[in-house]
């Protein structure tokens, strides 16, 4: 079968703060027929919260530069962080549809001999799996199904919304992660607060932790073995945020957050160490016990 070639847009958080997720991505994609193209020169997407809040036109300009680099290389991009997905998808959408804006941004890119053309697609890695690889092929790559493992889904916000731009799934009834979790033999658990934002972007001493705590209580109530997620920013809320909550409150949460591709790696037969799970501060012990990994 012909390999599916796609340009890897690593973003910042995964390669710098959570390289174990990158390890899992690089181990699992070849088993799905994806050939990862590493490209030189990408900057931050840039950050959809603070950079966009500072200067939306500059935000679009840097995003357009990243897209232009991929256009020069001639392949679609896959992203591994919901923030990068949001930034690059929105930039692609706005610049494709607004000629004046595109010219305005291209005047700045022309200074360095680049041009945004709108010729490539941006897909979050789970969308790449659904649309280019196929859920069946994900299922076929499994050598150790995660039978009996209950995964509480956390879609996060920016993979799905705004749906008119993202066009990934119905944000009120998304299926994509359910399908992927089922494909690796695990059981997706929908819990009460599955749509609540992780709160990371609120500038407030309490709001981020309030939202994170509500999600964690809901996951705990559901009896899931771990959380399954696809965004490193959400991950940090449920990892660092959870430890902070345990210090500040009497909650004693023990909810392991896991990046989907680490679970896929386990299902493809890699060890917990090989997909970086031994580096986690809240280890998914119940998951590993159930599959005897």
């Amino acid at each position: 079968m012909k390999p599916i070639k796609a340009i890897f847009f690593p973003g910042c958080l995964i390669p710098i703060k959570y390289p174990q997720m990158e390890v899992a991505i690089r181990r699992t994609l070849p088993n799905l027929g994806v050939e990862i193209i590493d490209l030189e020169g990408f900057s931050c997407c840039p950050d959809p919260i603070y950079f966009q809040a500072a200067d939306k036109i500059a935000w679009l300009t840097l995003a357009a530069r990243n897209l232009a680099l991929a256009e020069e290389a001639g392949h679609d991009i896959f992203t591994v962080c919901s923030g990068c997905t949001g930034t690059l998808s929105e930039a692609n959408h706005l610049l494709r549809n607004d000629e004046q804006l595109r010219e305005r941004v291209n005047r700045r890119l022309a200074r360095v001999g680049r041009k945004y053309q709108g010729s490539i697609a941006v897909r979050h890695i789970v969308v790449l799996l659904r649309e280019k690889v196929g859920i069946d092929r994900v299922r076929e790559s499994v050598t150790r199904p995660l039978t009996g493992v209950r995964v509480a889904l956390h879609y996060g916000c920016h993979l799905l919304k705004p749906s008119s731009i993202m066009q990934v799934d119905d944000p009120d009834d998304p299926q994509i992660l359910h399908q992927l979790i089922e494909a690796i033999g695990a059981e997706p658990v929908t819990h009460d607060e599955r749509f609540l934002c992780c709160g990371k972007a609120c500038i407030d001493p309490d709001l981020p932790l309030d939202m994170t705590a509500s999600v964690l209580r809901s996951v705990r109530k559901s009896g899931a073995d771990c959380m399954g997620m696809i965004c490193p920013t959400c991950f940090s809320s449920f990892d660092t945020g959870q430890l902070l909550l345990n210090r500040k409150t009497k909650e004693h949460f023990e909810v392991p957050p896991v990046y989907f591709f680490q679970l896929l790696g386990l299902a493809q037969g890699f060890s917990a160490d090989e997909v970086g799970l031994t580096r986690h501060r809240i280890k998914p012990t119940a998951v590993l016990e159930k599959i005897k990994a």
């Binding site: 390669p15 710098i16 390289p19 174990q20 990158e22 390890v23 690089r26 590493d38 490209l39 030189e40 020169g41 990408f42 900057s43 036109i57 500059a58 300009t61 840097l62 530069r65 010219e103 305005r104 005047r107 700045r108 890119l109 200074r111 360095v112 970086g276």
Partner: peptide, 25 residues
């Protein structure tokens, strides 16, 4: 971890792109 080094970013290029906008031609 067996990962490739972080690719370099041309900061000169980023600064040039981010310098204030010129008036439209």
């Amino acid at each position: 971890m067996g990962l490739p080094p972080l690719p370099a970013i041309d900061m000169g290029e980023l600064r040039a792109v981010l310098a204030p906008e010129d008036p439209p031609p």
